[in-house]
Structure formats: C-alpha cells, structure tokens
C-alpha cells in the first residue's frame, strides 16, 4: 500500500474529508471562539486538504478501458 498509489491517495483524502466535515459540523454545536477555531483549523484544513489529496488521486487513477 504505497502512498503514491492513487487508490491510497483517494482513501486518505476521503477519510480526511469525512473527518473534516464531521468536525466542521460538530463545531457548530457550541458558541464561542474555540468552536470557531476548531471549525477553521479542524474542519477547514482537513476537508480542503483531504479533498485536494483525493482529487489528485482521482487524476492519477488509470482511466477505465472501454
């Protein structure tokens, strides 16, 4: 399971997106600066980073033959 394997990149990215979206949602359950920071740092960074990683993996995946 190489880190350069497109499937691995997609899995890592998807996992990060799931974690990021859940953290982003959970941060909305409370009011205050700390949830806001959690939203930006946890939700934002994990989601955006994961999405970029997954998309890179998708682009590197071999196209299906007809």
């Amino acid at each position: 399971m190489s880190a350069k394997n497109p499937a691995t990149l997609i899995r890592l990215g998807a996992f990060s997106v799931i974690a990021g979206e859940l953290i982003a949602f959970a941060s909305q359950l409370d009011v205050g600066p700390t949830p806001f920071v959690v939203f930006i740092v946890g939700g934002g960074v994990l989601t955006v980073g994961g999405a970029l990683l997954a998309l890179y993996g998708v682009l590197r995946s071999p196209a299906a033959s007809a």
Partner: peptide, 12 residues
Amino acid sequence: AADFLLRPGRAR
C-alpha cells in the same frame, strides 16, 4: 466520501 473510501477504484 465514504463511497470513495470503500471503493476508490471507481474514481475513473
């Protein structure tokens, strides 16, 4: 995202 986590091969 979970669908891609479980089935990354369907990406293309």
